[in-house]
Design a binder for these strands. Structure first.
Length: 107
DNA sequence: GCTCTGACTATTC
DNA sequence: CGAATAGCCAGAG
């Protein structure tokens, strides 16, 4: 129902779900993909890359709480701005998302 | 319709 | 804990 481009139904579903993620919450690519009954985590990432400009892509992270590759710095600004629970980690970004508290799922 | 690529995940070393 | 490998799905050329 989104007015986005429609290269496929899968993309539409991903964009729609990501757009529903409330501020301060995050979901893993696997969770988002699995919501559609498809473990296409990579496909979800592709959707972000293609239409990420139209959705809060920073609310979609990798498993383990790691932010998107090559975008951890940008995502971090959004997390602090929205109050997303973060955890210090010895990663390149120097931080990690607290999935234990920030993990969100659709009703 | 086939092949390459990619903002992923899980397993193994 | 970190790096490397294999498996996965969907989109673009």
């Amino acid at each position: 129902m989104a007015v986005f481009d429609r290269p496929g139904d899968y993309t539409e579903q991903v964009l729609d779900l990501v757009a529903q993620i409330p501020a301060g919450r995050v979901m893993t690519y696997g969770d988002v993909a699995w919501t559609f009954g498809r473990p296409g985590a990579r496909a979800v990432g592709m959707v972000m890359r293609y239409h990420g400009s139209s959705v809060p892509w920073w609310r979609v992270i990798r498993a383990g709480g790691h932010p998107p590759t090559c975008h951890e710095a940008t995502a971090r600004e959004h997390y602090e701005e929205e109050g997303t629970p973060l955890l210090p980690a010895p990663t390149d970004a120097g931080y990690r998302v607290d999935l234990t508290a920030a993990r969100w799922a659709p009703e």
